[in-house]
Design a protein around this nucleic acid. Structure first.
Length: 302
DNA sequence: AACGAGCTCAACCGCAATACG
DNA sequence: TCGTATTGCGGTTGAGCTCGT
């Protein structure tokens, strides 16, 4: 499918050029044209870059394509648990400052984070029939989702054992002095596209260093600390299975086969949270079968 | 197999900020 | 200082995919 800027009648030069501008999905040829041009000339001056590279695209479109997809540092694949917590935490601080949030998630683009928020988080807000910006929903995020994710991160680290290492990302070998061939680029891109489960990912780091700036600590998400999240400038990160926030709610009937499953009774934050909600003496996440967002929400409203 | 609903995410749009002549 | 070009950001769209019926 190709889109073209439509026009009619007589045109001056700029309008004719405009008429030929391509829109819609990028082709492989366009991608390599852009990659090769940037490899030789670098980024910047996107409008002239588009013209000089022979791309019938706007500078904006080229920039977007490069930064969100073609840039060798762009990581693809599902967000890790750590990244999800980071997004929730940073969004609670900064709101829809996607680019700012993205700066703390190496290899992730603002667009990707924005999409995550809209498709996953806002979906659950909708299910809960509350506004995503409401205090109720924010409390839900902080006291339910985030502790749950943190617990899973910690449990995952405990089961896999510590691994010394600092965060790094696999990057495509971008030969800036020469030409990127389709073959080697696809090879590298394929490595990137293997996603979070295959590529080099944040490893358990006892020093807790991550390039971001948020320390994941269950106590941060206990009511005692209130909505004003305490945070520091380090972040312990490690490999995590692909997950979704939905897992925090959909207590799987087949949890025996689910590595992500952790019995609710093991959630340490429950204890500190129980001053207002008695998890231990209730059917909170109990019963083994299932519980959904509505159940959680009703529970919180008690 | 066919269909529709829901979801994902790449790409576009408009606007504000910044750079430049 | 002003006008224009460019860049960056957040919001929105819609094609294609997945999944359930």
């Amino acid at each position: 499918m190709e889109h073209h800027v439509k026009g009619g009648g007589s045109y001056n030069q700029s309008e004719e050029e405009l008429m030929e501008l391509r829109r819609g999905p990028w082709t492989v040829e366009e991608d390599f044209t852009l990659i090769n041009y940037i490899a030789h000339h670098g980024e910047g001056r996107w409008n002239s870059l588009a013209t000089c590279a022979g791309l019938r695209r706007t500078g904006k479109s080229c920039r977007l394509r490069w930064l969100n997809y073609l840039h060798p540092d762009v990581r693809r694949g599902n967000l890790t648990l750590e990244e999800q917590v980071m997004i929730l935490e940073l969004h609670s601080r900064w709101g829809n400052r996607w680019s700012k949030i993205a700066q703390h998630l190496p290899g992730r683009t603002d667009n990707e984070i924005k999409n995550y928020w809209r498709t996953r988080v806002q979906k659950h807000a909708k299910q809960l029939k509350c506004d995503v910006n409401s205090k109720q929903f924010k409390d839900n995020l902080r006291y339910l989702w985030m502790p749950r994710l943190v617990e899973r991160i910690q449990a995952g680290a405990a089961s896999t054992g510590p691994t010394v290492g600092t965060f790094s990302t696999t990057t495509a070998t971008n030969n800036h002095s020469g030409t990127i061939t389709a073959a080697n680029y696809h090879l590298n891109k394929t490595n990137l596209d293997m996603g979070s489960s295959r590529m080099v990912l944040p490893q358990p780091n006892m020093a807790g260093n991550f390039s971001g700036g948020v320390q994941i600590n269950p106590s941060n998400y206990a009511p005692e600390t209130s909505c004003n999240a305490a945070s520091s400038d380090s972040f312990g990160a490690q490999v995590s299975p692909v997950s979704d926030l939905t897992d925090c709610y959909n207590y799987p009937a087949n949890h025996n086969n689910n590595q992500d499953y952790f019995p609710p009774s093991e959630l340490s934050y429950q204890e500190s949270f129980s001053q207002g909600l008695d998890f231990n003496n209730s059917n909170w996440m109990d019963g083994g079968d299932s519980w959904d967002l509505d159940d959680v929400w009703k529970f919180l409203q008690q």
